[in-house]
């Protein structure tokens, strides 16, 4: 019966299946570098693991770090697109990820929610003290990318609002839009109330100030949105960034966060050079190349490194 022919057929079938599995095995190289590192990596021996947030602008900076280190003969592994701070900081502390582009103000507020530091230098100084054992920051960059509250031009004009202080005069109900974690951040709805006496509702929109956020603002689903200050959408959509005279937001400069084990003199020197060269205008321009010209992160990073000619 079939058992006689089965062996031959079975063999052919198994070959076909194993060929597919083998093909998949070849495919295990990861374009974004997310290898399945489950234990901590020994910094001295392996390549340095660079992470990034699930935010295109952060990924560009991470890619710049990666290419700069590679240009100096240092091996890197890319583990980009990890999500929000609460997700990746534990990985940095454990050493699964070793180098990460961060923002001084947001990072400080994560570790010290009650901090009173507001200016760029104060924040940077406070940050060095606030970081847990095993993590440190390298030099901060002049480039800033901080949370900011924005309204449409029409809203600004018709309500005479140019600053967060002015919002208290607005009589219509206000809803704030931003990523869901904003609701629990110190500068979120509670911060607006305690600092400026402004009561707002909250609508979570998960695209980090992207098209959905802008669309919601334009169709008046929300009146106030959190967009990072280096986002080119602020300019292209003609939004008005509200001033923050009482310092609800901390100054937030781009800063490399590094696991101390990985902070060798070579790595430090290369990354500090990059940070010094990256200006606020550069950052907006890099973001614009991504959003408006649809270039990929590695192309944008390579272009910038070529332009500044550091190495």
């Amino acid at each position: 019966m079939f058992t006689a022919i089965k062996k031959g057929r079975l063999l052919t079938g198994l070959v076909a299946v194993s060929a597919v599995v083998a093909l998949a095995g070849c495919a295990s190289s990861d374009p974004l570098g997310n290898s399945s590192t489950s234990g901590s990596t020994d910094a001295a021996s392996g390549p340095i693991v660079i992470g990034s947030q699930a935010y295109y602008s952060n990924e560009i900076i991470a890619e710049i770090y990666a290419q700069a280190l590679e240009a100096n003969g240092i091996e890197v592994t890319r583990q980009f697109n990890i999500g929000q701070r609460d997700a990746y900081l534990p990985a940095l502390e454990s050493g699964d990820v070793q180098l990460f582009p961060e923002y001084t103000g947001n990072l400080l507020q994560y570790y010290a929610p009650d901090t009173t530091a507001r200016t760029s230098d104060d924040v940077y100084a406070a940050l060095a003290d606030a970081l847990p054992q095993g993590l440190e920051v390298l030099d901060q960059s002049p480039a800033t990318d901080q949370d900011s509250y924005n309204v449409t031009k029409e809203f600004s004009d018709s309500n005479g609002v140019t600053s967060l202080e002015d919002l208290a005069k607005v009589t219509t109900p206000l809803t704030l839009g931003g990523n869901s974690e904003l609701q629990t951040r110190p500068y979120g709805p509670e911060g607006l109330l305690s600092t400026y006496g402004v009561t707002v509702g909250f609508t979570p929109i998960e695209d980090s100030g992207g098209p959905l956020t802008i669309a919601a603002l334009k169709d008046n689903t929300v009146q106030l949105v959190n967009i990072y200050s280096a986002d080119p959408n602020i300019k292209t959509s003609g939004l008005v960034t509200l001033e923050d005279p009482k310092g609800l937001f901390l100054a937030s400069n781009v800063v490399p966060l590094i696991n101390s084990d990985a902070a060798t003199p070579e790595v430090t020197a290369v990354i500090n050079k990059v940070s010094a060269a990256l200006t606020a205008e550069d950052l907006v321009d890099l973001n614009s190349q991504s959003v408006n010209d649809q270039k990929s992160a590695d192309t944008i990073a390579a272009g910038w490194l070529e332009k500044v000619a550091l190495f």
């Binding site: 999500g83 609460d86 997700a87 990523n179 869901s180 609701q183 979570p204 998960e206 959905l212 689903t221």
Partner: peptide, 20 residues
């Protein structure tokens, strides 16, 4: 649905993920 601000129970899950 919550990812595009469509409400429903995912709101809690996405927020819980972002804030652990």
């Amino acid at each position: 649905a919550a990812y595009v601000s469509g409400g429903a129970l995912g709101v809690f899950i996405f927020q819980a993920f972002a804030t652990r």
